[in-house]
């Protein structure tokens, strides 16, 4: 099945500036994840291999409405950058072995799957927002910034819902909706970062460039929360 994931990478890299090829690459990834899901009997959301593949697919899926947005018609470089980002994380997923074990009892609940899937949708939207911020800085045009705001706000909604579902899961699994672990601290930092970003919108158009930069920095905080904490800090709450 891994060939489906591998095949999506060149398709994204070569053809994602054309929407049909972008969609074809996304369908390959969705087929890969569906196959994994069917063979495991659960969503493939454990371990770096599966989560990176899920993240890559989420980026492509969340990019899709933006690829068809009226304001971005003909912005092929932006289409390609979304495909490139999805390809990058699919490529990162390849070296990791997939974990084919059944879920440990504590993770065997819909709250866990909801929590993780929503977090990845949010991360993906923060990635799209960063790309839109980059497009604004390179080309100008307030349309990019408005779409960046919408991507970040939708991502923030997904992320807040992920935190809520994680809290409910935590309460039923561990007896508390909050644990002091580096992962939770960085989750709060990421949530506060995008709270700050959304409040900054009220500062007006003088802050446009800083707003765009903040959208880009937000994705770096996202990547640290997802990958950095698991690799650099000791936390039971990782991958």
């Amino acid at each position: 099945m891994k060939w489906l994931l591998i095949a999506s990478i060149p398709l994204y890299l070569i053809g994602s500036s054309r929407r049909p090829l972008f969609v074809a690459a996304l369908l390959l990834q969705l087929s890969f994840l569906a196959g994994r899901g069917l063979s495991l009997g659960r969503l493939p959301l454990i371990g770096p291999g599966d989560t990176l593949a899920f993240f890559s697919c989420s980026i492509a899926l969340m990019s899709l409405p933006f690829l068809y947005a009226r304001e971005l018609a003909g912005e092929r470089r932006f289409f390609w950058s979304c495909g490139g980002l999805a390809a990058l994380f699919a490529l990162c997923a390849l070296p990791f072995p997939t974990l084919n074990m059944p879920l440990p009892p504590i993770l065997d609940t819909y709250w866990f799957e909801l929590h993780v899937a929503l977090a990845f949708f949010a991360y993906a939207l923060f990635g799209v927002a960063a790309l839109l911020g980059g497009a604004f800085l390179l080309k100008g045009g307030r349309g990019f910034l408005d779409l960046q705001y919408r991507a970040a706000l939708t991502g923030y909604t997904f992320f807040s819902l992920s935190m809520v579902s994680g809290g409910i899961w935590g309460y039923y699994a561990w007896g508390t909706y909050w644990l002091w672990t580096p992962k939770e601290l960085w989750t709060s930092i990421l949530w506060l970062f995008y709270s700050l970003y959304l409040h900054l919108r009220a500062k007006g158009t003088d802050w446009d460039r800083r707003f765009a930069w903040l959208g880009i920095c937000g994705f770096l905080v996202t990547l640290f929360t997802y990958l950095g904490v698991s690799m650099l800090l000791k936390s039971s709450h990782s991958f």
């Binding site: 580096p182 601290l185 930092i189 506060l192 800090l233």
Partner: peptide
């Protein structure tokens, strides 16, 4: 918000 983020970030290490 920036202050809370900074202190939590330092604290996480």
């Amino acid at each position: 918000m920036a202050g809370v983020m900074l202190t939590l970030a330092i604290g996480s290490f």
